[in-house]
Design a protein around this nucleic acid. Sequence first.
DNA 1: TTCGATGTTCGTTGAACATCGAACAAGCTA
DNA 2: TAGCTTGTTCGATGTTCAACGAACATCGAA
Lengths: 101, 101
Amino acid sequence: MPEIMGALSDPLRIGLIRVLADGGERGWGELRAPVAKSTLSHHLRVLRDAGVIRTRQEGTRCFVRLRREDLESRFPGLIKAVLAAADTDGVGNGIGLVSGA
Amino acid sequence: MPEIMGALSDPLRIGLIRVLADGGERGWGELRAPVAKSTLSHHLRVLRDAGVIRTRQEGTRCFVRLRREDLESRFPGLIKAVLAAADTDGVGNGIGLVSGA
DNA sequence: TTCGATGTTCGTTGAACATCGAACAAGCTA
DNA sequence: TAGCTTGTTCGATGTTCAACGAACATCGAA
């Protein structure tokens, strides 16, 4: 459980979670963050290892999804509170999708 | 805000927060953690800098209190979720008070 | 099979952090 | 004043972590 908190203690990862907050599946290449791809891969691994996201392979592509229900059952209310706080503070605003917003 | 999450990502600090969860004021010397006093002092400073606790000096003694209302207004629902999850997982069970659990 | 695209892994680097013991500062107490 | 208690600060040590570029693995397309 400190692992989860650690995963949520980085602005970039918070930004990724915000992008995935709607529960939809996103393509790896769709994600936009101001870091090298190896760094992005690292952060996605941290989130995956902490059980925050799930990745799915399809050919050479990779799709990412927030494990919202699993998180809700293991840490009730946590994700909601974190997302709300992140919205308020604008944490991870630099992270988004290719098409913008 | 990532600062808060970082502060909550250490089992010892989670344990301290659990001890202070009732909102009551506790003496420094009342706190029991399996670390050197310099280490404990360090963790309390991290919590203080993150705005999680407030410390009050009285002569040579120091009293600690959880800033629950402030946290609630800035990060609604967060502390509650964290405390619940910590209780469930038994995070920070090694931290307590002199007189015991 | 050769090429290009997509992510992952590797090796490194610099910063942050947890931990300890020792030294220190401040305030009671004898 | 001298000494004890309480907590902070300092310096050192080892670990973790974010970040990068380069190399690698894998798959689809030409």
